[in-house]
Design a protein around this nucleic acid. Structure first.
Lengths: 214, 214
DNA sequence: ACAAATAATGAATCAATATTCATTATTGAA
DNA sequence: TTCAATAATGAATATTGATTCATTATTTGT
């Protein structure tokens, strides 16, 4: 059957050699460009054509890597959120420290990092876009809330905290520090010292919130 | 000059009698319809034509009352937010109770009311729409944050709370209870008892958060 | 009741971009 | 080097729903 009379169709070019690398690179450039555009113009000013321009590819090329604008931006958002979630999880998993200490550090670190990233954090946390993209944002919040809920449960087991609704309080902790990030962002850029001051204040707020009232 | 030769243009119809009332009514119906649509379909499904249908007017009529879709929905959002803000302010201003008690009640009440309103609360708190509408949402959050910041300052003055960044913590309180509202909403409708349980948990969380750690 | 004026209507238009796809450039095997 | 196949391009198209506005219905003052 190799000498089939329909051989014409058999020619075929193999998938790729270094072309694959080039494509991978283009994909990466597109994602980077998208992240940059979100940071500079927010979701509001993020057009596919702009991203293509900055990435140095044609508009149509973006659709060879992503099925839609929403998918592209979802991917960006997911990546950003996942990195932050990993940081939080890593701190939460540190050994030899109380749950309260780790919770404090996780909040402090998240806030300080977010304040440093400036407008990108704003877009990630609150700026609306597509409902598909928004779904990613909600998932990220849920991920954070779950991580903190787990930490709270640990604290309860260890006797550091009184019995309480860990799920709900995990969500409240997330709400508190996200708003704590957005609030200063609406003013202006902060210095390192200011960022740490905000992070510390919010972290103390969250730790205290889990302690039983008199 | 009353017998001017250009009198034709002078005829004129007076502004209105009961027509004014009818217009006022239409305006109210449009706002109510818009609020209803937001509750049922969210901002996502909120089309001008749908609102017009429900209000019983033509699409074009909406533009005789509001300059744009964004203005219409901004107005709805503003009204909803203002009512809630008034409730919070009223509780914050009650006399003969500690700042902590009033703060507790304000949070409890806000959460319980929001959970009762269901999807409307969701849309008001987190669902994205127009950037103009979003501006109203942010303003409302700031309004709430300011109200709580004032309450915290009062608590500090009264010696109930230690020295702290009232601005920032006010924002954190708002973030905490808004997320506390959204979190349960993502699941299902709650009974009165459940709503109060959530409200109580979040209120305790917020009050505790303002107390200095050991 | 009539005419001038205003109000309401809703189908047609517009706008803003995401998405497509015919065309052109590149690539890989013979 | 040549050719078939794949990749990239970006101008043209499609979509979606807000907004307009010519037309029709109501009002008001005489």
């Amino acid at each position: 059957m190799s000498s089939n009379d329909e051989v014409r169709e058999q020619k075929a070019t193999r998938p790729s050699p270094r072309v694959l690398a080039r494509q991978l690179d283009a994909r990466k450039r597109i994602l980077e460009a998208a992240r940059g555009v979100i940071g500079d113009l927010g979701f509001a000013g993020a057009q596919v054509a702009t991203v293509a321009d900055i990435a140095g590819v044609a508009t149509g090329t973006i659709y060879r890597h992503f099925t839609s604008k929403a998918e592209l931006f979802s991917e960006v958002l997911r990546a950003v959120c996942e990195r932050e979630l990993d940081v939080v999880r890593a701190i939460a998993a540190e050994e030899g420290r109380t749950a309260a200490e780790r919770l404090h550090d996780a909040v402090f670190t998240f806030v300080a990092r977010a304040l440093q990233s400036g407008d990108l954090a704003y877009a990630v946390i609150v700026e609306p876009m597509d409902s598909e993209v928004d779904h990613v944002r909600l998932a990220a919040r849920r991920g954070l809330a779950d991580a903190f809920a787990a930490l709270i449960r640990e604290g309860i087991s260890a006797g550091e905290y009184p019995e309480q609704n860990a799920e709900l309080r995990g969500a409240a902790v997330v709400g508190a520090f996200l708003e704590g990030v957005v609030h200063p962002l609406e003013q202006s850029l902060l210095t390192l010292a200011e960022r740490e001051e905000v992070g510390e204040e919010i972290a103390q707020f969250c730790v205290a919130a889990l302690t039983k009232r008199a």
